[in-house]
């Protein structure tokens, strides 16, 4: 049967979707910069309570996972199906590790009574409320993207197992990679803006 496919259109569509994602987070970064400008001191003090080591480790985890999914594309192009699947598995495991770290991080703050709407937080003033509001919302939205990315990669891995994605038909794997890299890209900015303000 004649195959009807347009890889360039598929990739263009994925990029257009990524642009809407970039504008979504871009808007949040604008909110962040304005609130930080108005409440500079409160933002600095509040940021000291975030754990820089955990943030750094999570950054490195995401960077490595981006590299492994990029390598899995190289592997499928070189017709190494097993290696491609192995690299995707590593990507998923790294993504899960990121989420587990995030769980402990959030858990630590929540245990201390610092979460949106808590009485302990509202006692600390407007700047802290804004900082933690943005922290929970932006890292939460980012974590949601990680979860969606992991499900996406899971489907792609299944398609590789069933030979639906092969060395000459791998645009879907590339698109899942693009999505995962975007999630990495957003974290590259979230990390210094929330963890590294001194």
């Amino acid at each position: 049967m004649e195959e009807h496919r347009d890889d360039l259109a598929s990739k263009t569509g994925m990029w257009l979707f990524l642009f809407t994602e970039m504008l979504l987070f871009g808007g949040l970064f604008i909110v962040y910069s304005v609130y930080r400008y108005i409440n500079a001191d409160a933002f600095h003090l509040a940021a000291h309570e975030l754990s820089v080591p955990i943030g750094t480790i999570n950054t490195i985890i995401l960077l490595i996972s981006s590299a492994t999914i990029a390598m899995s594309i190289t592997a499928i192009q070189k017709e190494n199906k097993k290696l491609s699947l192995l690299l995707l598995t590593i990507t998923v495991l790294l993504g899960l590790t990121f989420l587990v770290n995030k769980y402990f991080e959030w858990g630590h703050h929540i245990k201390e009574g610092i979460y949106p709407g808590s009485s302990a937080l509202s006692l600390r003033g407007h700047g802290d409320v804004l900082f933690y509001g943005l922290y929970y919302f932006m890292t939460g939205l980012h974590a949601l993207h990680i979860i969606i990315g992991l499900i996406f990669i899971g489907f792609i891995a299944r398609m590789i197992i069933h030979d639906k994605i092969t060395s000459d038909n791998h645009v879907l794997l590339e698109n899942s990679g693009l999505y995962w890299h975007l999630v990495d890209l957003i974290w590259i900015f979230l990390f210094p803006l929330f963890y590294l303000i001194t």
């Binding site: 009807h4 496919r5 347009d6 890889d7 360039l8 750094t56 950054t59 490195i60 960077l63 490595i64 981006s66 590299a67 990029a70 390598m71 594309i73 190289t74 192009q77 070189k78 060395s167 000459d168 038909n169 990390f191």
Partner: peptide, 26 residues
Amino acid sequence: MEHDKGHIIPYRTLLFVVTGLIMLTL
């Protein structure tokens, strides 16, 4: 319609880039 395999990025390049990215983070 495009059915080409496209450009292949060598593993070495990717490893090199990720090392650089980790160093920039640190």
